[in-house]
Design a protein around this nucleic acid. Structure first.
Lengths: 193, 193, 193, 193
DNA sequence: AATGAATGAGCGTTCATTCAT
DNA sequence: CATGAATGAACGCTCATTCAT
């Protein structure tokens, strides 16, 4: 029996099964939140994730911790998508497609705006995180499309984000897509003036 | 069994009492729903109305019955407001003011859209009622404003209603008013082209 | 159909079934507290009483409310017993028998002293109630026995109550009875000095 | 398979580590039990001991095993104290001081009496151990004090132990001390009769 | 027809205990 | 052997709904 360094357990590395559980939980929670809202019973989430309720509470002692984690995860995913889209598509196409991602984000976050306005201090960092992450992304996409001459980027990232938040109809993605087209066209038409 | 007037009140008198209870309940429910959402405890409503919970369940055997009744009542009130506004104001002004009423309706009916899409058969008639009642109103207001030359009514009532439903921000009435102005202006500008 | 005053329901009189439920609950709670202590599961009490848990919470919103009610009820019963014993027995006999009642009270109130010292404001009136009710009873019994020449009452009610509280062995009533005899004898012996 | 000293630690070394863990756990458990009672969460103990919960359950498969171990350990400590006190003090002083130790034992073992009478078979050997260990100690202290002429030892060890168990007030050590003095004086006064 | 007491399912949460690492 | 993540039964409590009065 030889004892090499590889046999020593790395105590501070996150155990792989733990990380898997965490991922499963976040995915399940995101699904349940999208389907039933953030007030859905905890049991629904744990059942979907196939874990005991204690596991959820170990990772997210407060319900708001879970909600925040889900939101951040989806915000991050949406941000990452922008990079991928920018690499694959022309600037205007990338912008349009990414607005579709953003619409998806809003459509599945029925409780997002309510949570933000709940006054619960657990959510107080969320709006800032939202703008910190999405602001530069929108800025980048607009600037790129402007540089390519496709649009005139005369809208602030903040205004574009807010407009998107308010036009999305979670029950009618066709409508939402139509509205996105309208907005992009609005930016494009102005580019010729 | 002798029946004297004092012992057996006239039937229409009884019905008036019942009607008063019903009104009180609907008003109380509307207030509570606006303040706490449609998931508020029943007890809150009965307390506000000053009746026992049995009375509520006599009139509305299912919770959804109460919710539907409140929604219909407020839809009706909103419809009635249109008539009053049309009588008092110029067509364009009437349209603008009425869109304000409609925004108020959406803002205080946080659970309305959720109820519509819940899939619960209890709510299946609600969308139809919504369009039956609001469709002609919007049609009338648009037509009148078009006839007066103030706008070109090139939007369907359905699209205008849906747009209103999606743009309302219950937490920010200033934003909502701003958006209403934008829409009306959009219709107006086109009228000159 | 004649309507006399006897047919009018008395709205402010406690309904009989309600009172019965309350009694059942208090009795069940007293039994459970005696057997398992005041930290016993609520369910145990409601099962024993044959009522739903909501009924318990309606009458005793806080657990401490139930505990206090049980204690007061048993204090009252113990106080009432003194009157009955004084009427039936000679003073010294009445005193001895009543100390037996008191011992029973302490024996079945395992959580009593703990509750008193818990610092929970819900219990802050309990010690005062205890002394208010028991103080005069002990005083009366001692005075009567002193007046009859059976004992010399040279112990304060407070001291006698405290001694009783501390000598009771809930698991061994024979021992407790023996100790009561010792105390009474102690008072008696002195009466001859 | 080669066995070098560095790869296979000497067995008694391992056992020393284990023993240290066991001591740490017992000490932590005793502290927690004294502060929060024997129903305190296991987690509190493992945190205080700085070990994982698995370690606790390896040594004490049942919760009652831990409780019993703590009780036995403290009984043993109390027994050992008697030896030390007898060596240092005159018999009567030693007895009085040791009764103080015993009172301390009862005061910090709030769950002890409950455990003894719980009917749980896990605790069935505890009363016997209690008497086996404490009986001779009390016997010895009483005999020594009797031999020195300080008291007349006309109380059985059993009765003295039971009296101590019942008079201790964990919330009022002054009262407890007072009662100990009374008892010892009681034994002393009789010595002159 | 009105009242409000009672029911009991269902939720959030804790924590003793097990078991993969 | 030690760790601490995971389990899941059990509890306190709420509240929609029913039903005796």
């Amino acid at each position: 029996m030889t004892t090499g360094p590889s046999e020593e357990p790395a105590p501070h590395r996150v155990r792989r099964d733990v990380q898997r559980n965490l991922d499963t939980l976040l995915t399940a929670a995101a699904d349940v939140f999208a389907a039933e809202g953030v007030d859905a019973p905890v049991r629904r989430i744990t059942e979907k994730a196939g874990v005991g309720s204690g596991t959820l509470y170990r990772h997210f002692p407060q319900r708001s911790d879970l909600i925040v984690a889900v939101f951040r995860r989806e915000i991050d995913a949406c941000v990452d998508a922008a990079t991928a889209l920018s690499a694959q598509y022309e600037p205007l196409e990338a912008l349009t497609l990414w607005l579709g991602c953003l619409a998806e984000f809003f459509a599945t976050k029925r409780g997002f705006k309510t949570a933000l306005h709940s006054g619960d201090p657990a959510y107080e960092n969320l709006p800032a995180y939202f703008m910190e992450r999405f602001g530069p992304v929108v800025e980048g996409l607009l600037t790129a499309a402007d540089a390519s001459g496709d649009i005139r980027a005369d809208i602030t990232p903040y205004d574009l984000l807010r407009t998107m938040a308010n036009l999305v109809d979670p029950e009618d993605s066709a409508y939402t897509r139509h509205m996105i087209t309208l907005i992009v066209n609005g930016l494009r038409y102005r580019s010729g003036s």
